[in-house]
Design a protein around this nucleic acid. Sequence first.
DNA 1: CTATATTAGTTGCTAATGAAACTAATATTA
DNA 2: TAATATTAGTTTCATTAGCAACTAATATAG
Lengths: 150, 150
Amino acid sequence: MTKEASLKFHMGMGMLINSAHRAMTKRFVQNAMDSGSDISLDQWMVLGPIWQLGSASQKELGEICLKDKTSITRLVDALERKSLVVRIEDQLDHRVKRVVLTNSGKQLFFDVLPIMEKTREEVRENISDEDIDTFKSVLSRIINNLGDGK
Amino acid sequence: MTKEASLKFHMGMGMLINSAHRAMTKRFVQNAMDSGSDISLDQWMVLGPIWQLGSASQKELGEICLKDKTSITRLVDALERKSLVVRIEDQLDHRVKRVVLTNSGKQLFFDVLPIMEKTREEVRENISDEDIDTFKSVLSRIINNLGDGK
DNA sequence: CTATATTAGTTGCTAATGAAACTAATATTA
DNA sequence: TAATATTAGTTTCATTAGCAACTAATATAG
């Protein structure tokens, strides 16, 4: 392998994905903070499905968020510490814990929705819908090629 | 915002990027491990430019790898612990530390190169070069829109 | 019905990240 | 040249992630 080919690799996809992801996360957290909400992107991504579904088991959250159960445990821990959600033991299957939003969880959800939209627009500036579609389709195919990485 | 719109968001880019990145990282580390090399993707991404350049200051590594200086310090720490690199104080500017590969660093570099190539092929399966180009261009534009997130 | 397997979730360990405060060396400028 | 600012890198503290080993509860097989 030539040094040039190596350079090409190093400027490759992995690094770009890493960097883009970091930048998006940082911007979202910053925007939320600027408008007075203290929440990480991962915490937000868990909150949404709970709101949608009314309640969700941790397993369900893992499937929806493409995260492993350990990560979900800890995200729910963090959300519970902030009093945004509570765990409720499932009455039918005592292994299962259903996670539900508290009132302040619902409040925060609605506060942060417009922040999310704002961040999304900042991310997509100068990028056509068509390119975004291709982009998402490539991501899905990568995940498909490799398994979801959970 | 409707629940459907929310779902759309939650299946959005952020999560896909996150998941794809995690899957790629995991596959690379797994492939390396399977062939007997113990190295993380981030460590590898630092190693490459050092090999290319012969030696590199930590600042240079940060610029090339799009990582902040703290991360570089710690990655170089890890590589030094594994005896893959050494830090050498720059003779002209004593603030600067130049990082160079040891012999086992070079050895590992050449051992892992084909693993990288293999992983890259696995990632790109069923994805046309054209889509990859669009994909990378979207990533670059996102990074550009937001700053590099370092 | 009892032994075994599976499932949901948690915990301990290790690695990576980011911000801010810090040290030592070099550059600037008055 | 002396005082100040900037730069390269490190350290500290807090957060986050993944893997593997673990617990408790349910489901399955004999």
